[in-house]
Amino acid sequence: MIRDISNDQWNKWKAPKGEVFKCTTVKAVAVRNDGARSKIVTHSYFVDPEMNTRYTLPVISLVTEYENLFDNSIGLYVNENYEQRGAEWERPVHVEFFETSGKLGFSLDAGFRIHGGWTRKYPQKSFRLYADHNNDIGEIKYEIFPGLRGTEPARK
């Protein structure tokens, strides 16, 4: 219900119509008595007996700290920060991709930034994911769009 997310006078923020179905996310870390910490583990859970039939498209869960989106100075989504570009405006995010059946396709830590030109001003924004954010993965090895094999060379 945060409203300072758009400056487009033709596409103003609107409250959702009806209930918005959401998932529950859990982030956990183990801490020993000496203060040593494990890696943070993040998972998204959909608690719904009809999950296997609820969606006709895959679902992507993006989990990040509240501040990364809504903090007045560093949040990507507010105070016209969505106009900012470049690596300094990339924030950490945990990404999970769920098939329409609810089966987990992949899970990884990545980075994300606001994406687009004029659409950055819209209340609903596009994100660009970076699989190489603070890790060595560099790419997502999963068939997100079945049957699509990438770009082919231009034909003459």
Rank of each mutant, 00 (worst) to 15 (best):
I2E: 14
R3N: 08
D4W: 03
N7C: 06
D8R: 02
W10C: 05
W10D: 13
W10E: 12
K12N: 08
K12E: 11
A15F: 05
A15Y: 08
A15T: 14
K17T: 10
K17R: 12
F21R: 13
F21L: 13
K22Y: 14
V31C: 02
I40F: 00
I40A: 06
V41K: 12
H43K: 15
S44T: 15
V47H: 13
V47S: 14
D48G: 02
P49G: 01
M51P: 00
N52A: 15
N52D: 12
T53F: 02
T53A: 08
P58K: 04
V59R: 09
V59T: 13
I60Q: 09
S61G: 13
S61K: 01
L62G: 10
T64G: 08
E65G: 11
L69M: 15
L69P: 01
D71L: 04
I74A: 01
I74D: 02
L76N: 05
Y77N: 10
N79Q: 11
N79H: 08
E83F: 08
R85L: 10
G86I: 05
A87S: 10
E88C: 02
E88K: 09
E90P: 00
E90M: 12
E90A: 07
P92L: 09
V93M: 03
E96Y: 00
F97Y: 15
F97H: 14
T100P: 05
G102T: 10
K103F: 01
K103T: 10
K103A: 13
K103D: 14
F106V: 08
S107A: 12
L108Y: 05
A110R: 00
G111P: 03
R113L: 06
H115G: 01
G117C: 02
K121H: 14
Y122W: 12
P123E: 11
Q124H: 07
Q124L: 10
S126Q: 10
S126F: 07
F127T: 02
R128I: 09
L129S: 06
L129I: 15
Y130N: 11
Y130T: 00
A131C: 07
D132Q: 03
H133L: 02
N134R: 10
N135I: 11
D136N: 14
I137D: 12
I137M: 13
G138I: 01
K141C: 02
E143F: 06
R149S: 07
R149F: 03
G150P: 06
T151K: 09
T151L: 10
E152Y: 04
P153C: 02
P153L: 06
